[in-house]
Design a binder for these strands. Structure first.
Lengths: 136, 136
DNA sequence: AGGAATTCCTACTATTTTAGTAGGGATTAA
DNA sequence: TTAATCCCTACTAAAATAGTAGGAATTCCT
């Protein structure tokens, strides 16, 4: 599973959005200052969040982002998935001669890693953005 | 959490040791062939496994490795820990000005990530090497 | 005694991934 | 018209990963 700073930043930023909700949209500049994440990096992250329909944007001055759905309906797995693309611990490389080639006894750990993935995904499926906002 | 190929190889190799146990020690050459992992890489891995008292070695011709303890007493977390050193998803960097500095509201995800670590560790704590050997 | 098999140990290196920067364009409110 | 903001792509530096290389030490076997 790719679980990096980018994923963490995304969760942080979304939690920020949720807990600082106001009338209009919230600009990345604000989030950048509050969460101490570089603006340019946030832009990249929000591009993906937007493409995954987790936030809605309005452009121009006073523009910014708002949650696309209520915080109670956004699962953390959605966020992680949006920015990290794959929610798998490790791919047993398809065309590699090394390691797992997914047949018979070669990769005894294959199933194990799959199970772990499910575990992690399950964890993030359970927690909603709303749950996090309470902590902030 | 650092959960890479090295960790997976380590688990594979240990499972191999467990399920191919015979009278004498098993050489890395054998494991290398069976599991399709380079010998030199296996050597590095087994150095760590040995330092962590998971295997015992005998040198020289006909040398090799045996499990230090019964497979029923070796937890996967022991193995992962031995080769990957840290079992944590992400460190909120101590001296970084970026991201979490672990005070107040800055890092709302800090606790979350800690919980996830516990989840993953718990997973690997439950499974014993013996459980894996059955699969192979 | 000598050769082959094996572990032991350290250092190096190529590749990939991550994290972040840079720069310019498009849009909108005031 | 200007400033703020989103939008988008490309680039880059640093870190981590995966693996190689090479030789030393040890032990078995003939």
């Amino acid at each position: 599973m790719k679980l990096t700073n980018k994923g963490r930043y995304a969760v942080m930023a979304m939690a920020d959005l949720a807990s600082n909700a106001k009338d209009g949209p919230i600009s990345l500049t604000e989030i950048s200052l509050r969460q101490n994440i570089s603006l340019a990096y946030l832009e990249q992250i929000f591009l993906k969040l937007k493409n995954n329909k987790l936030v809605r944007s309005s452009r121009g001055a006073n523009g910014g982002y708002v949650l696309e759905k209520p915080a109670s309906e956004i699962k953390l797995s959605n966020i992680i998935y949006a920015v990290d693309e794959e929610v798998k611990t490790l791919n047993c490389k398809k065309n590699s001669k090394r390691g797992c080639n997914n047949k018979s006894t070669k990769c005894i750990t294959h199933n194990l890693w799959d199970q772990l993935d499910q575990h992690i995904i399950g964890f993030f499926e359970k927690v909603k953005l709303q749950d996090l906002a309470k902590l902030g």
